[in-house]
Write a protein that binds this DNA or RNA. Sequence first.
DNA 1: GCGACATATCATTCATCGCTGATACGAGAA
DNA 2: TTCTCGTATCAGCGATGAATGATATGTCGC
Lengths: 117, 117
Amino acid sequence: MLIDTKAQTLDLQAKLFRGLADPSRLAILTALRGGPLHVGAVVGATQLSQSNVSNHLRCLSECGLVQAEPRGRFVYYRLGDARVGELLQLALDLLGGVANGIAACDRYGDEATKPCT
Amino acid sequence: MLIDTKAQTLDLQAKLFRGLADPSRLAILTALRGGPLHVGAVVGATQLSQSNVSNHLRCLSECGLVQAEPRGRFVYYRLGDARVGELLQLALDLLGGVANGIAACDRYGDEATKPCT
DNA sequence: GCGACATATCATTCATCGCTGATACGAGAA
DNA sequence: TTCTCGTATCAGCGATGAATGATATGTCGC
């Protein structure tokens, strides 16, 4: 239906951001910004467990954020769209301006940042 | 410590994206792209409950994504940084390319999209 | 001061997501 | 074929976050 398009778009947008809202996935995507890597290389680059990486890659792949390319018994992954990289970069830029605020926000995961008070 | 900067950045980045990874907050931010609004207006624009909006605005404000400006007994909110709007727009652009994939991804919240299989 | 309105806070409930460990699958080498 | 390596899948646990409803704070008009 047309009148619901707005809400649907918001949901899709939220889903997209949720795909990026995890340090593990960000580490994977960031690693892939340097070029295609096979799973083992991603595991090495991110220090994550193999099944963890595989799980995330599956999701990212289904969402189109990365593309899989089987080659022999390896599977190479690359970013699925250049704008994924842009999005990551823009987020980094934004962090330069509001990083202090983000760090201070105690509402969401603060594994690496101290909760305020 | 310097050697941990990378992981910390990833965490902050994740936190930033997590701030955007919710349809309610996206609705609020999208509404604010049109200019400053007071809480009641945001409630009207988003169809969310007042306490829900207030909670989200608090978080967004602490994170620097929006700015609060008390005026009389109203409180007007605006986007805290132009790049927030850019980020939203870039996400929308990206959705144009991979929306089908995002919709198909059954791993994350699918309130408005059907799970695949 | 008193009542009405705008906003903020709090505790609870409910759902969701990420990680782990074990295991299954599949392709290549010997 | 058989063994080994790379990758994928699955179930379960632990933790986090979003929405609600009631309530508190604070500001304006009368």
